[in-house]
């Protein structure tokens, strides 16, 4: 908690940005599209933070985060459709299920090293996707359309985008604070030491398996939470859209772009890359050429080759230079 407060104390900057974000929708009332992009940015800030925990801090390259996301979305939607249960409860059920799946899966495969773990998560994600595509009980390839209830807080459904904006903003902030808290805590230290040298960490007496599982499960919780809310927002889910491996891949690229294992990295990454993707899609994708993907690829390549610590490190360096200049 104390750490959480620190997060706000860290600078008036953050406070200011927060106020700006809270006020922003007032100026975007007639621009739901921009609001939509903002919401997607928040979704990816949260998802990227979740990935940052398992990938950036604990160093386990997971391609399974979108599965937890989908578990959250499917659980609450199924409960809403069949039991007419409010998504507020479904949200926690979804998180619980995703946590259990993450625990069992993690228990089995977290001891795998590097690429093996990555490929095993890809395989698991594909299995779940194929099963859902063929499971008539959850709509199979038809997907699930959420029943249109009366717009209300109880059903977490609104006809306007504004409430969604604030909810996703809240989730993005919560997940960022959570990562910040972990970053400053002992567990954060342990995660980093596991990432740096797992055997070494083990020798020093860290229960590496426990901590890796912890990171994996927390990461799954965040994803499931976002998944539930996303289903409530988009109102239609199907295995091909919400179990697409591109979701996890995007998270990884966002974290990499922003800065691996930093609190600010995923935020920066999502804020820059998602609008950029939207922009290139509209400006260049309209030609039907696929140029937007090429540009996306080039940006990633340049970042990876010349600035593997991500954009955050550039900003930090700029700040230092400015300080130096001011001093002299």
């Amino acid at each position: 908690m104390k750490n959480g407060m620190n997060f706000f104390k860290k600078g008036k900057w953050l406070f200011l940005i927060l106020i700006a974000l809270l006020l922003l929708p007032n100026f975007l009332k007639d621009e739901p599209y921009v609001l939509h992009v903002c919401i997607i940015v928040f979704v990816y800030v949260s998802l990227a933070q979740a990935w940052n925990l398992i990938g950036g801090y604990a160093g386990q390259i997971s391609f399974v985060n979108h599965t937890f996301f989908a578990i959250g979305a499917y659980t609450s939607t199924m409960l809403l459709i069949y039991l007419n249960l409010t998504p507020w409860i479904g949200l926690f059920v979804g998180m619980a299920i995703a946590g259990c799946v993450a625990y069992v899966l993690g228990f089995q495969i977290l001891h795998l090293k590097g690429h093996y773990f990555a490929v095993a998560t890809i395989a698991f994600a594909e299995i779940v996707k194929l099963l859902f595509l063929n499971w008539r009980g959850v709509g199979a390839a038809y997907g699930l359309s959420l029943p249109l209830k009366m717009p209300s807080f109880y059903y977490l459904m609104w006809s306007s985008k504004l409430p969604y904006y604030y909810i996703f903003l809240l989730v993005a902030i919560i997940s960022t604070i959570l990562i910040y808290t972990i970053d400053k805590s002992k567990a954060g230290m342990y995660f980093r030491s596991i990432k740096q040298d797992e055997d070494g960490a083990k020798h020093k007496g860290i229960d590496t398996r426990y901590y890796k599982l912890l990171a994996f499960v927390i990461s799954a919780w965040i994803c499931a939470l976002v998944g539930t809310l996303y289903a409530q927002y988009i109102l239609y889910i199907c295995p091909r859209s919400c179990m697409d491996i591109m979701i996890s891949t995007k998270c990884i690229l966002i974290v990499l772009f922003g800065g691996l294992g930093t609190v600010a990295g995923p935020v920066l990454g999502a804020v820059i890359l998602i609008p950029l993707a939207e922009y290139t899609r509209i400006k260049l994708g309209g030609g039907g050429q696929g140029w937007d993907y090429i540009i996306y690829g080039l940006i990633i390549l340049v970042i990876v080759l010349y600035q593997p610590q991500g954009v955050y490190s550039i900003l930090r360096r700029c700040k230092k230079n400015v300080q130096k200049m001011l001093r002299s």
């Binding site: 621009e31 739901p32 599209y33 199907c238 697409d244 899609r281 509209i282 030609g287």
Partner: peptide
């Protein structure tokens, strides 16, 4: 005015929103 759905439901929706609003 062209919008690219990329063959995915979310992109289709966001393209529709863009076209309607912007």
């Amino acid at each position: 005015i062209w919008g690219d759905s990329r063959g995915t439901p979310e992109e289709g929706r966001s393209a529709a929103e863009y076209l309607i609003i912007n």
